[in-house]
Amino acid sequence: MPNLKVSDVTLTFGGLHALSGVNMDVKAGLITSIIGPNGAGKTSLLNCISGFYHPTSGEIHYNGQRLTKSSPHQVSKIGIARAFQNLELFRGLSVLDNLMLARHQNLSYGLLHALAFFGKASRVEAENREHVEKIIDFMELEAYRKQTVGNLSYGVQKSVEVARALTLAPQMILLDEPMAGMNIEEKEDMVRFIFDIKNEWEITVILVEHDLGVVMDISDQIYVLDFGEVIGSGDAEQVASNPKVIEAYIGEE
């Protein structure tokens, strides 16, 4: 079973310790959440996993494969997809093209085929289009298929962001605050999607989220970060009763 092992990862920017000695063990097939106050280092940790940052020290392994020095496109090839917190979509393109872009590695035709758009190129494009259509169907984006992403509402753009990560056909998906700025209905939809991603698609989920109610309800495993350190971990009950976590969130009496 695939799993992700973060061992003793430290990330410093000059004198600032974004992460210090973080250990994390993500089990396959589960929803693992990372929570913590603003600036705790949640996104930094995701950036380390997906290769945007390289840890100052420590190691990250996925199924025994070392990710510590990998670049983002290598990580995505291994099967770890990432949805961004601050919408990093291709704004000038349609939803369809955004998703087709995520199929980039699977489009295995050469330049000459592409120039003539004949035979292989046309066939491979059509096959991948079919895969993309499955994701569009799953994320309920049919109505927006041909619309330019920049013109869509925030909630829909968030869905497109998740859909794009799914289109990579990953084994593990990193969701960075997929529910931020959504209303209650959109949140309910998103939670349903996350459950389906885990159960139907059998994709391991790492979730960073501020809505503690949601996190406590859906997570199998929770890690709590504060000032770059893991201050608590375990299932929802263990974390909720951890005095350090209570202190970090509510403060001392």
Partner: peptide, 30 residues
Amino acid sequence: GVRNLLRTRYGRSLVAVRDNDRAADAMGMH
């Protein structure tokens, strides 16, 4: 040739890099 290029992965990767090269990286292209 250009028209065809633009509807395949080569053309799309160009636009991806223009719009957001961080995300393009995460989508598996260099």
